[in-house]
Computed example of a mutant assay.
Amino acid sequence: MLSTRKQALHATLDEWVNAHTDALLARALQQVSDRSIAEDLVQDTFMAACMSFEQYRQESKPRTWLFGILEHKVADHFRKKLRNPVVLESSLQPERADRLMEQYFAADGAWLPGRTPVHGDYYDLHLLDDPQFSQTLQQCMDKLPAGWHAAIHLKYLEEKKGKEICQDLNLTTTNYWQILHRAKVQLRQCLDHHWFKR
């Protein structure tokens, strides 16, 4: 039979699961864009909350505490993907990305003639309001290697600072900027092909 203390813990966690699962899942989906992974992260969040419940001092609301745990779980997820990358498609190998950059940039880093972004839609701030564009952007991001996807997502969608991203992903500053540059070039080519030049 459970002790009174354990019964109280179970009752509290049940209450939290019922009250906060939807919000946590919505947040996780924003960050990883894969429902099954998001659900696993939320489950891991509640497991961690259960394991460290004694450390919860009620100085913050339960939702705030749970969201903090979720942020750590998401960061752990991205770090794990960097440590154990999936086999990349040949089109996404770093050597391929270097060749791709050579198609856009001169040796001094300047845009090659005819490669400078000039299409008005690149500067349309309302593009992200278009569900079809958002879907195309997500599909292009999903083609990126895991580390590239994580860096782009954290910088541009989560609006985190470079220093935070380097800490979250265990990257050096140089590696971080290199990843961002390669990912943006890859995204540009993908969006050119699937959106702007369709």
Score class of each variant (00 low, 15 high):
His72Trp: 07
Asn84Val: 08
Ala75Cys: 05
Tyr176Val: 00
Gly120Leu: 08
Ala106Arg: 12
Tyr122Glu: 07
Leu157Tyr: 15
His126Asn: 13
Glu89Val: 05
Ile152Trp: 00
His119Trp: 04
Ala38Asp: 00
Met1Val: 09
Leu100Cys: 03
Thr12Ala: 15
Arg27Ile: 06
Ala26Pro: 03
Thr21Cys: 08
Pro113Gly: 06
His193Ile: 10
Ala150Val: 01
Tyr123Met: 05
Ala26Ser: 12
Met101Glu: 13
Ala19Gln: 14
His77Gly: 01
Phe105Leu: 13
Leu82Arg: 15
Leu82Glu: 08
Thr45Leu: 01
Gln135Cys: 06
Ser52Leu: 09
Thr64Leu: 00
Ser52Glu: 15
Lys160Gln: 12
Lys163Arg: 14
Lys73Gln: 14
Lys184Ser: 07
Ala97Met: 15
Val87Ile: 13
Ser36Tyr: 12
Gly109Ser: 07
Asp129Ile: 04
Gly162Val: 06
Pro85Thr: 08
Glu39Cys: 05
His153Met: 10
His77Met: 05
Asp108Gly: 02
Ala48Lys: 14
Thr64Ile: 12
Asp192Ala: 06
Arg83Phe: 03
Thr136Glu: 09
Phe46Gly: 04
Gln103Ala: 11
Gln43Trp: 06
Val87Arg: 12
Asp130Pro: 03
Lys143Phe: 04
Gln103Arg: 15
Glu39Ile: 06
Leu88Ile: 12
Ile152Phe: 00
Phe53Thr: 03
Gly147Asn: 00
Lys143Val: 02
Asp34Pro: 04
Gln103Phe: 06
Leu125Ala: 11
Lys155Phe: 02
His126Met: 10
Leu100Asp: 05
Phe78Asp: 05
His194Asp: 09
Trp148Asn: 09
Ser134Asn: 08
Glu102Gly: 12
